[in-house]
Simulated scan of single mutants.
Amino acid sequence: MGLFDITKPDILKMRQKQDVKGLVKALRYKKDWKVRWEAMEALVHIGNPATAALIEALQQKNRNVREKAAEALGRIGNPIALPALIKALKDKYPSVREKAATALGNIKHQMVVEPLIAALKDASPQVREAAAVSLGKVKDRRAVMPLIELLKEPQKSIRERAAEALGELGDPRATKALIASLKDDGRSVRANAALALGKIGSAEAVEALVEALKDPDEKVRWNATWALENIKKMQGR
């Protein structure tokens, strides 16, 4: 155990001096999660000058360091970090893979699409969910069919994110699958499916959305109402 592990790091001082090396080291401070969080925030504040050190931090043995490094890189948004973040999708810890998947969606580059599609089959539900959200942000139509498959996931939260992402992509190929999701057991899945259908704007969804106006959940009914109005606008009626 080194002196740094005993003495609480002075994050404010390191931030003022832009001590990137010291802040990265502070990411592994075990005694106080707040110190680790403040160190990450300081690195994000420093921005691009911290990118190289954070990329290097993705190789450190400490899981907390890798998690915070991935999150910080995503928030900084420098595309130079993409290869390292894509590699982090293979990290042995699901929490690191989840942070990497989220970071890739924040950077929004076409080279992240295939790795994120592969991450939809990750063993961790949290990683699959993060990958779905990120694919919705990137808005590349290569993700449409894999996200449609994700609507069959046993875990409700993943189906929610898949429906949401398909709405962001706005591809009519998802219409039939989203219509089926209006009958999902999860009310939030149904609500997201209704919203997504409204964003896609296909007249094919009108009948199912009219039926969804009778849904027992208020949010589903509200989203179905909005969707019908938006489809009407998109169809030029």
Rank of each mutant, 00 (worst) to 15 (best):
E56A: 15
Q59P: 03
Q60R: 14
N62R: 14
N64D: 13
E67S: 10
K68S: 14
A69S: 13
A69G: 08
A70M: 08
A70C: 10
G74W: 07
R75A: 07
R75N: 13
I76T: 07
P79C: 09
P79Q: 13
L82P: 02
P83D: 11
A84F: 12
A84S: 15
L85D: 04
K90I: 03
Y93S: 14
Y93V: 13
Y93A: 15
Y93G: 01
P94H: 00
P94W: 02
S95T: 08
S95E: 11
S95H: 02
R97H: 00
R97G: 03
A100G: 00
A101L: 08
A101I: 05
A101H: 02
A101P: 02
A101E: 03
A103D: 03
K108S: 15
K108A: 15
K108E: 15
M111I: 15
V112H: 06
V112G: 11
E114C: 09
A118N: 15
A119R: 09
A119K: 05
A123E: 15
S124E: 02
S124T: 00
S124L: 02
Q126I: 01
V127G: 00
R128E: 03
S134E: 04
L135I: 06
V138N: 03
V138E: 04
K139V: 01
K139G: 00
K139P: 03
D140I: 07
R142Q: 15
M145I: 13
M145S: 10
L147E: 05
I148D: 03
E149Y: 05
E149M: 07
L150T: 14
L151T: 04
K152F: 00
K152C: 02
K152V: 03
K152T: 08
P154I: 00
P154K: 06
Q155K: 12
K156A: 12
S157E: 13
S157L: 11
I158D: 00
A162F: 07
E164G: 04
E164K: 10
A165N: 02
A165I: 01
G167N: 04
E168P: 01
E168V: 01
L169T: 00
G170L: 04
G170M: 06
D171P: 08
P172T: 07
A174P: 05
A174R: 03
K176I: 10
L178R: 10
I179Q: 11
S181R: 10
L182D: 09
K183P: 08
D184K: 07
D184P: 08
D185S: 14
D185Y: 09
D185L: 12
R187L: 13
S188E: 14
V189C: 06
V189I: 05
V189M: 05
V189R: 06
R190L: 05
R190N: 06
A191S: 11
N192F: 08
A193F: 08
A194F: 03
L195Y: 13
A196K: 02
L197M: 08
G198Y: 05
K199C: 01
I200P: 08
G201D: 09
G201Q: 10
